[in-house]
């Protein structure tokens, strides 16, 4: 655990969050604070790498779309976002949340935005896992009657 672990976790959550849910939670949070863009939302790609044989050296698998954005709040905190997909509004909200998480409102932001997002992602993950578990094969050996 280092000082960045917490920030890494919330930025990762924001990157994977469904845009619609994030924007609804953001609207519920309230007023958009005063801010200035350091980098206006920009759509680009990242080259995703895999490992040969799953465990070996890296190879280039293909790209994914990513939108990034950087901004600074009136109170001075700098927020960054790198989020999956091409949603500029989502990147802006994610950067705002990142900036607010470094200021005095962190606890409120965590409770109203991040915790519901984490819960949502975990619920989705658990649902898929439980559907997969229902398709797990139970083998049984036939009695062959040879002895």
């Amino acid at each position: 655990m280092d000082a960045n672990t917490d920030r890494k976790a919330w930025m990762s959550t924001l990157a994977k969050a469904p845009a619609e849910l994030l924007s609804r939670l953001w609207a519920d949070f309230g007023e958009t604070p005063e801010f200035e863009f350091l980098r206006t939302p920009e759509v680009g790609g990242a080259m995703v790498r895999g490992r040969m044989g799953g465990t070996g050296a890296a190879f280039n698998l293909g790209e994914m779309t990513v939108t990034r954005c950087s901004l600074q709040l009136g109170s001075g905190e700098v927020g960054h976002a790198y989020v999956q997909g091409r949603d500029k509004a989502k990147a802006r909200i994610a950067a705002l949340v990142d900036a607010l998480m470094q200021g005095p409102q962190a606890d409120v932001v965590r409770a109203t935005i991040l915790t519901p997002l984490v819960d949502h992602l975990q619920t989705q993950r658990a649902l898929r896992a439980s559907k997969a578990a229902a398709t797990k094969v139970e083998f049984f050996t036939m009695v062959r009657g040879e002895d």
């Binding site: 680009g44 990242a46 490992r51 790209e63 990513v66 898929r128 896992a129």
Partner: peptide, 23 residues
């Protein structure tokens, strides 16, 4: 389309042993 995208970087290699498997 992908040729129009600026390349933000290369990711770390995906660790497929940490995959959430559905199959």
């Amino acid at each position: 389309y992908r040729t129009t995208l600026p390349r933000f970087g290369y990711t770390l290699p995906i660790e497929t042993e940490r995959m959430d498997c559905i199959r």
